[in-house]
Amino acid sequence: MNDLYRAIADPTRRVILDELVERDGQSLFELCGRLAMKHGIGSSRQAISQHLEVLESAGLVIVRREGRYKFHWFNGEPLRAIAERWPTKDPGETSR
């Protein structure tokens, strides 16, 4: 659980997740291009790779090899634990 909070505490890692939600199954090269060109995040490829490892260990990113290529996929499943721990009411069922 701590891995999850640590993973989403970093703004660059949140942008990585945003970009994977926009298009799932990206190479490291594509992700770095999007971060640099769309968000002005000039981190090195090595740094982005390390961010991806943190996201992967939290279960938020899944890495799949297809032949000689490696792609990164978003997995929102671990986030469910947050909503279950602090449930939010629907707008219609406010307690006042």
């Binding site: 190479s27 594509e30 060109m37």
Partner: peptide, 12 residues
């Protein structure tokens, strides 16, 4: 390995 991607100044 990367479909057309709009990066603002360039599409790759």
């Amino acid at each position: 390995t990367q479909r057309p991607t709009d990066l603002g100044a360039v599409i790759t």
